[in-house]
Amino acid sequence: PKDEAKKKVKEAIKRGDEETAKRIAKKYNLDWDDAKREADEER
């Protein structure tokens, strides 16, 4: 599900692992900028 994928993307971003985050986002066709902004807001 997309929500689960987005959570994984945000967790990867918070760990500083943007490569993984981008790969997950691409795989699930998520909006990378959107997920990154959300992760930054939660930090």
Score class of each variant (00 low, 15 high):
Asn29Lys: 08
Lys8Pro: 01
Lys26Met: 13
Lys6Met: 15
Arg37Tyr: 06
Glu42Phe: 06
Lys36Ile: 13
Ala21Val: 00
Lys7Asn: 11
Lys8Phe: 11
Ala5Trp: 14
Glu11Ala: 11
Glu42Gly: 07
Glu38Tyr: 05
Pro1Glu: 15
Arg43Pro: 10
Ile24Tyr: 04
Leu30Val: 14
Glu41Asn: 12
Lys26Glu: 12
Ala21Trp: 00
Lys36Thr: 06
Lys27Ser: 07
Asp40His: 09
Lys7Trp: 13
Glu38Ile: 05
Asp31Asn: 12
Glu42His: 06
Tyr28Pro: 03
Glu19Pro: 05
Lys8Trp: 15
Glu19His: 06
Asp3Val: 11
Lys14Pro: 01
Ala5Asp: 02
Lys36Gln: 08
Glu18Gln: 07
Asp33Tyr: 09
Lys22Met: 13
Glu4Ile: 12
Glu41Lys: 09
Thr20Gln: 10
Ile13Met: 08
Lys36Val: 14
Arg23Cys: 14
Leu30Lys: 00
Glu11Trp: 06
Asp33Val: 08
Ala25Trp: 01
Ala12Tyr: 14
Asp31Leu: 04
Lys26Ser: 10
Lys8Cys: 15
Ile24Val: 04
Lys26Gly: 04
Lys22Phe: 07
Pro1Val: 14
Lys7Glu: 11
Glu38Trp: 08
Lys26Tyr: 10
Gly16Asp: 03
Ala39Met: 08
Glu18Tyr: 15
Ala39Leu: 10
Ile24Arg: 01
Arg23Phe: 09
Ile13Gln: 01
Asp3Tyr: 12
Ala25Leu: 02
Asp40Ile: 10
Arg23Ile: 10
Gly16Ser: 02
Gly16Asn: 04
Lys36His: 05
Arg37Trp: 07
Thr20Met: 13
Leu30Phe: 03
Lys6Val: 10
Arg15Pro: 01
Ala25Met: 02
Asp40Ala: 11
Ala21Arg: 00
Lys27Leu: 15
Ala5Gly: 08
Thr20Phe: 10
Glu18His: 12
Ala21Gln: 00
Arg15Ile: 06
Asp3Leu: 11
Ile24Ala: 01
Ala25Lys: 01
Leu30Gly: 00
Asp3Phe: 12
Lys22Ser: 03
Arg37Ser: 07
Lys2Trp: 13
Asp33Thr: 08
Lys22Tyr: 08
Lys22Cys: 13
Asp31Gln: 05
Arg37Met: 08
Gly16Tyr: 03
Glu41Phe: 11
Lys14Trp: 15
Trp32Thr: 01
Glu42Ile: 06
Asp40Pro: 04
Glu41Asp: 10
Ile13Leu: 14
Asp3Ile: 11
Arg23Ala: 14
Ile13Arg: 02
Lys7Ala: 12
Asn29Ile: 02
Asp17Ala: 03
Lys26Asp: 08
Arg43Thr: 12
Glu19Thr: 10
Lys22Glu: 04
Arg23Pro: 00
Lys22Asn: 02
Asp34Lys: 09
Val9Asn: 01
Glu4Ala: 12
Asp34Val: 12
Ala35Lys: 02
Lys8Gln: 13
Ile13Ser: 01
Arg37Gly: 05
Glu4Lys: 10
Lys27Gly: 02
Lys2Val: 14
Glu4Trp: 15
Lys2Tyr: 14
Ala35His: 03
Arg23Asp: 09
Pro1Arg: 14
Ala12Val: 02
Lys7Cys: 14
Arg23Val: 09
Asp17Asn: 04
Lys8Met: 15
Gly16Trp: 02
Gly16Gln: 02
Asp31His: 04
Asp33Gln: 09
Lys2His: 12
Ile13Gly: 00
Glu42Leu: 06
Lys6Arg: 14
Lys7Ser: 09
Lys22Arg: 15
Asn29Thr: 03
Arg43Gly: 12
Ala21Met: 00
Glu18Phe: 15
Arg23Leu: 13
Ile13Phe: 07
Asp31Trp: 02
Val9Ser: 01
Lys10Leu: 15
